[in-house]
């Protein structure tokens, strides 16, 4: 059994209908999970002795702008045992957008989630230190959202006053 089928079978067996979609695009396996199961799935993937997805390589988001479920959170996790990188997606629509943090599972997700918060304004519930990453403290917008103008919002970032 190749690792893709093996992983898919295992997750399907454990999560049943909470596993919303399985896709295999350009040789990348992607599982879409209900957003409230993300920590359970993370724990399962990490602790299951046959899977051992020990490393979280990236957390980011997609802003679909017009869809009802506007944001998709994307995780990339790696298993050294299977030598396999898996993509996990979770669609969220709540207002304000929020999802449970996976820092309890993968500690490395802390800064990725901070970045995602900074750029997309997605609240990671129970995150230990949800501060801005790139933009200055006190900035009120989230630049990678589709409705944010590329040139920025005039006056939203402070400049020193002009030296004479």
């Amino acid at each position: 059994m190749n690792p893709k089928e093996f992983i898919t079978e295992k997750v399907k067996e454990k999560f049943g209908p909470a596993l919303e979609e399985v896709s295999d695009f350009r040789d990348d396996l992607c599982l879409t999970i209900k957003s409230d199961r993300i920590v359970l799935l993370g724990n399962f993937l990490k602790t299951d002795p046959d899977l051992q997805f020990l490393m979280c390589k990236d957390v980011t988001a997609i802003d679909w702008s017009t869809r009802k479920k506007r944001f998709t959170i994307v995780y990339h996790v790696h298993s050294f045992k299977l030598n396999f990188t898996l993509r996990i997606k979770a669609n969220i629509e709540l207002d304000p957008p929020s999802i449970e943090t996976v820092t309890s599972v993968w500690r490395s997700a802390e800064w990725y989630e901070r970045e995602t918060w900074d750029m997309y304004g997605i609240k990671f519930i129970n995150h230990p230190d949800l501060r801005r990453m790139y933009m200055p403290e006190g900035f009120e917008h989230h630049p990678l959202r589709k409705d944010f103008p590329v040139i920025g919002i005039p006056g939203s970032l402070p400049l020193p006053h002009k030296a004479e």
Binding site: Y134, P149, V150, G152, L159, K162, A163
Partner: peptide
């Protein structure tokens, strides 16, 4: 960098 993060000319704050 016609972008939100880049100052569009430092003459806005330096002579």
């Amino acid at each position: 960098y016609r972008s939100y993060s880049v100052v569009q000319g430092i003459d806005q704050f330096l002579p």
